[in-house]
């Protein structure tokens, strides 16, 4: 969004909004309801208990194992822009006093793409749930696997999916939230095998990106193709929840699905 001092323009309907109103409305356009992309920090602040977040695994940083052209430059640029080593922010947080293990993606870091660091952080977040007996919540935002790490990225799909399997076996509820966009390698791995899948309104959700589809000769597509609404209609997600209701829906789910973890003496 174009942001000046006091005004900005909605990315979707192009109407002019007051910056103060916009933030108060959780960066959702007051006219058209468009959910603008937000940083991991902002999302954590708006979703979990105040000051409950403890960030972990901040020491993991991508190398350039394949010596892929221009990869290091792109990485450094993203690191500078976001002051992070990866799009995934993980750690412990609380929801209405209930402990949860969380992973929150930030699309602005190289399109939230899943390379080795990203996959490792997601895996650790899921494993933390098992170890500390608390539900896992992952906010997804990704264009897919990170091409620049080649097959190593593809294997993150298997690694993260295996971690979900271990959550299931340990009776650890795992909730995925698809934010704009949740695509390809991320969608086709840990994101789609969550116990509960929530999406933000109008989020782009799909397997093949537009350029890949075009390459494969896919032409005519429905108007709502690859949107959260399309997924809901086709039974691929549980519900669409607007940003301002996200916290309360998550609290209800953690309370019910994670109930067995929070019985007296059972909570960590």
């Amino acid at each position: 969004m174009k942001q000046s001092e006091a005004f900005l323009q909605c990315q979707s309907c192009k109407k002019i909004l007051f910056s103060i109103d916009f933030d108060q409305n959780l960066r959702v356009c007051t006219y058209c309801g468009h959910h603008h992309r937000i940083s991991a920090e902002t999302r954590i602040k708006w979703t979990f208990d105040e000051d409950s977040f403890e960030e972990l695994d901040t020491d993991l940083r991508s190398g350039n194992p394949l010596e892929f052209p221009d990869y290091i430059d792109k990485l450094r640029l993203a690191e500078e822009k976001t002051q992070k080593f990866d799009s995934m922010t993980v750690g412990r947080a609380k929801l209405a006093e209930m402990p949860v293990s969380i992973a929150v993606a930030d699309f602005s870091f190289m399109g939230g793409s899943m390379g080795s660091v990203n996959g490792e952080k997601v895996t650790r977040a899921l494993e933390r749930g098992v170890k500390e007996k608390c539900p896992v919540i992952i906010f997804c935002a990704s264009g897919g696997a990170r091409m620049q790490e080649g097959l190593l990225s593809l294997m993150q799909m298997a690694k993260t999916t295996a971690a979900v399997q271990q959550c299931r076996e340990a009776g650890i509820p795992y909730i995925a939230v698809f934010t704009d966009p949740t695509m390809a390698g991320v969608l086709a791995s840990y994101a789609s095998v969550a116990d509960v899948i929530i999406a933000e309104p109008k989020a782009l959700v799909g397997f093949a990106g537009a350029r890949v589809s075009k390459q494969a000769g896919v032409s005519k597509v429905p108007d709502d193709f690859q949107t959260a609404e399309f997924c809901l209609k086709h039974g691929m997600i549980d519900t669409i929840v607007p940003r301002k209701e996200m916290r309360s829906v998550l609290i209800s789910l953690v309370k019910t699905l994670g109930g067995h973890l929070f019985v007296e003496g059972g909570a960590k």
Binding site: M157, A158, T161, A162, V164, Q165, A184, L187, A188, S189, Y190, A191, S192, V193, G206, F207, A208, V212, S213, A216, V218, K220, V221, P222, F225, Q226, F230, H234, G235, M236
Partner: peptide
């Protein structure tokens, strides 16, 4: 398969579930 039919029937979920 990246087509509309596959997306409608959840190709991503099918792959993830099979992997799992």
């Amino acid at each position: 398969d990246p087509g509309v039919e596959s997306e409608s029937r959840g190709i991503s979920e099918a792959i993830a579930a099979s992997t799992m």
